[in-house]
Design a protein around this nucleic acid. Structure first.
Lengths: 238, 238
DNA sequence: TCAAAAGTGTTAAATATACACCCATGT
DNA sequence: ACATGGGTGTATATTTAACACTTTTGA
């Protein structure tokens, strides 16, 4: 579906006034990162609309796959952004002008949108990010240092980060940000990064192992600089 | 706004395909109760639509006030119900038939609706419940024994209950279900009811007081059967 | 052999738990 | 005076925290 088709057909394909945005988060180089798309000098979260014949959650899964190639990942709705004048009209106007598309204020895409905000946890190395029709660039950005964001997408990304912070200690989901096999030092560093504070090594390891959700693999991880740490994975029987 | 006006004007007043439902919960006679509305032999949660010039949260506040008379209460969005074929069309058909209103399948109100599910915590004695135009009856029902519910409203009510269960130990919100001044035994019984398990008296009291959010009032509560318990209220300086 | 990272152990502090005890009050 | 519910204290178990000790490995 190209841009013109999207503008013409969107109104009949999608539920009006309802959008969704996903803060797709990953862990790389010791930093928590979020996938952003760029257009006209500003950035936004990957987003989309809910098909008339599609559930809201399916739409989120579809958008996640469209932008990362991942079929199944941890995905959770965490908030709804529903301010009364919330619209992307200014941004779309710029895009349309540049692309030489017919644009008018009453276009469905310029209307007020209530947005369902999801966050997703992915292993960056498994993703194959792609931009959409509208974007000029895309990439992973440190959540602690976000670039200029369009509309309220900076707020949404920050709220996602806050939610993850709260969730991580209650639900055991952080491993979704790592490969299937990972080491305790990696998990430890991940938690320190997300919570932005030091966590005592010994205690962290004991707490994690006491959860009983990890399985230690027989062979220690290779190619480590010093002593080789054990590899773990999530137990199958859950 | 009467029913005919609602059917005729609703489409231009409200965002299409988006509704909200509120599990308004209260505590009475040692039971956790939820406010339900009845029509055509089944029950539903109080709900409404989001005005085109109104934020989603404002809409929830408005609906809460319309049904209880309460201007401000604890109110929280906890989930979004967005299955693809989710519609109240069957139920509205029955109502319209009974009321002798013109009804047709394509009416805006029969379309698929994505519903924002909120829960509210209120002091039942402060409420003045009223039904809407559609309802024949309304009342407080024990959440553990819900009557026949229309569509997915039973599921929404149960999910609200579950969410409250999770929230109550992390956030300190349960006092919203009690009058301004309450006793420890009342708070204790409330928590036991919500969590559906015994909580040791001594420990509960110590934990609650150690939170530092309650203020003991000078005079013990009057008209108690045995020893008069102290009254508490929430500290102003929060 | 030494420094750095990984893994485990050991002790002290803080919380949670169980239950005992005293207080106030209506009958 | 006593049964009952309210309020507090005390001993024990469990969890959390701090940090010491040992192991592994490359330089």
């Amino acid at each position: 579906m190209d841009m013109q088709e999207f503008l013409d057909k969107g109104e009949e394909l999608f539920l009006p006034n309802l959008s969704l945005d996903i803060a797709i988060m990953g862990f790389q180089d010791g930093e928590l990162k979020v996938l952003l798309l760029e257009f006209e000098g500003g950035w936004s979260l990957p987003g989309g609309y809910v098909g008339r014949d599609e559930s809201t959650d399916s739409a989120a899964v579809r958008v996640l796959e469209e932008r990362t190639g991942l079929k199944q990942s941890f995905l959770k709705l965490f908030q709804v952004f529903g301010k009364k004048d919330r619209s992307f009209s200014n941004e779309f106007k710029k895009i349309a002008a540049k692309a030489g598309l017919s644009w008018h204020e009453e276009l469905w895409i310029n209307k007020r949108f209530v947005s369902l905000a999801y966050y997703a946890l992915v292993d960056i190395d498994k993703t194959n990010p792609t931009g959409g029709e509208w974007q000029q660039a895309f990439g992973w950005h440190n959540v602690k240092d976000l670039p200029k964001m369009w509309m309220d997408h900076g707020e949404i990304a920050s709220a996602a980060m806050e939610q993850l912070r709260r969730d991580i200690t209650l639900e055991h989901i952080s491993f979704n940000l790592l490969p299937e096999e990972f080491t305790m030092p990696e998990l430890h560093q991940l938690h320190e990064t997300i919570l932005d504070k030091k966590l005592e090594r010994s205690r962290f390891q004991k707490k994690m192992l006491s959860l009983g959700i990890f399985e230690r693999l027989p062979k220690p991880k290779e190619d480590a600089p010093r002593r080789k740490p054990y590899l773990y994975k999530i137990k199958e029987s859950t």
